[in-house]
Amino acid sequence: MDFDFSPLIDSWRFLASGLGLTIVLSVTAVACSFVLGLAVGLGRMYGRTWLRTLLVFYIDSMRAIPVFVVLVWIYFAVPIISGYSFDPFWAALTGITIHVAAYVAEVIRAGITSIRKGQVQAGLAIGMSGAQIIRQILLPQAIVRMLPAFGSIVSVTIKDTAIAAVIAVPELMRQAETVAGQSYRPIEVFTTVMVIYFLLIFPITRLIDRYYIRVAHLGRS
């Protein structure tokens, strides 16, 4: 068995552009999911009954449907309904955000409900309003407690961006498939890309865990 890594060297720019897009897609998807997830999580906890019912349905549906199915549906089916066709990148960003935001919402809810009732009462006792208590007391503590879960959400999001290859977003996974197909060297290409993904995801989750250990006491009431 002999290995030939030269196709990788020849097409390194092509792969690097894929890595760049993977990072861009991951960062925007994490940011959008966090904003949407925060809104959904708070709406699910403090919204009116109809809103809560709706949001629970949305969250549980996203827990039930694979992100692959969501992406494919948004990319292929939505244009048929709406008449507009999506750029693959935007379809992927939308699909991943809709999917991951549901998890963010659940994590935020779990974070907030884990905070003792006494903390709310201490806020009430000095005359704070409901909104002030959420902003000043509950969210800051919940965010600290959420950090480990947030770390795994970041890692899941990066992994999910690879699925965008299925709808031809030219990110790292897709570029790897292309190089592997053209060079007939799939083992070398996929193994190298494995290392790249590992070097991308592993340090991020580690850093978040490290940081959490340092700040954990800020969330321990």
């Binding site: 006792a125 000095i126 005359g127 704070m128 000043q136 800051p140 503590q141 321990r220």
Partner: peptide, 30 residues
């Protein structure tokens, strides 16, 4: 409630605030 101070059995200090911030939070926010 602003005219009644309350002290709890389990303190209920806010863990993400320093001692100083815990004392001043009512003054600044409320």
């Amino acid at each position: 409630r602003q005219r009644m101070g309350m002290v709890f059995q389990s303190f209920e200090l806010f863990p993400h605030k320093t001692a100083l911030e815990n004392v001043s939070i009512g003054l600044t926010t409320v």
